[in-house]
Amino acid sequence: MNPANYLYLSAILFTLGALGVLIRRNAIVVFMCIELMLNAANLAFVTFARMRGALDGQIIAFFTMVVAAAEVVVGLAIIIMVFRTRRSASVDDANLLKY
């Protein structure tokens, strides 16, 4: 199979993720879209590693996964705290930190 197709898939996933971050209001959905973008990047790394026959890309994909896991822990905790105090998971409602 042509490895370029994986790259196309990665680009599509990244675009979907980015659009989701920009368009959706629900914090959980925004969070999942961020994960989608991270994994799109991971797919691109792995594909390039395969295409070049080098391991660098795969190692970086592991790093990304570790960082993503840590991020999920912190991010979900924040979202839950916000939801508890404001009774809403909308990112537009949490706009106190402004001018």
Binding site: A18, V21, L22, I23, R25, V30, V91, D92, A94, N95, L96, L97, K98, Y99
Partner: peptide
């Protein structure tokens, strides 16, 4: 310039993007 700080996360995300 201060008015740019709207507090909406999504607008920040758009500008970063």
């Amino acid at each position: 310039l201060r008015r740019l700080q709207t507090g909406f996360v999504r607008s920040y995300a758009l500008s970063m993007f």
